[in-house]
């Protein structure tokens, strides 16, 4: 997954259009490199296979009225 530069190039091309972003030609290589680094990090996490009973960490507090939803704001 992480070394398939052509696929990441194609992914970026499609995704930036759908998101309304512009990547100038001189930024392109750097953005793809960062995508590949992010993919490597994500792959490392996914390879671990945490138990399916392990739910995502974020919690929403319906009682909070603060802008940042942190307990002490």
């Amino acid at each position: 997954m992480t070394d398939d530069r052509e696929n990441w190039d194609a992914y970026m091309e499609a995704a930036i259009k759908l998101l309304g972003l512009t990547v100038r030609p001189e930024w392109r290589e750097a953005v793809i490199s960062h995508l590949i680094v992010n993919a490597g990090a994500a792959s490392s996490v996914a390879d671990f296979k945490a138990p399916e009973t392990c739910l995502p960490a974020p919690e929403f507090d319906p009682r909070s009225t603060s802008a940042d939803n942190s307990p002490k704001s």
Binding site: V45, A50, L55
Partner: peptide, 29 residues
């Protein structure tokens, strides 16, 4: 330029990667 390219790449992150990271976060905690 040092942040722009990383933010652009970050904006293209598949949501499944984020969910997996948050699941692992609970395990690690």
């Amino acid at each position: 330029p040092d942040t722009r390219d990383r933010f652009l790449a970050g904006a293209l992150t598949p949501s499944a990667w984020v969910t997996e990271a948050q699941r692992f976060r609970r395990w690690f905690r």
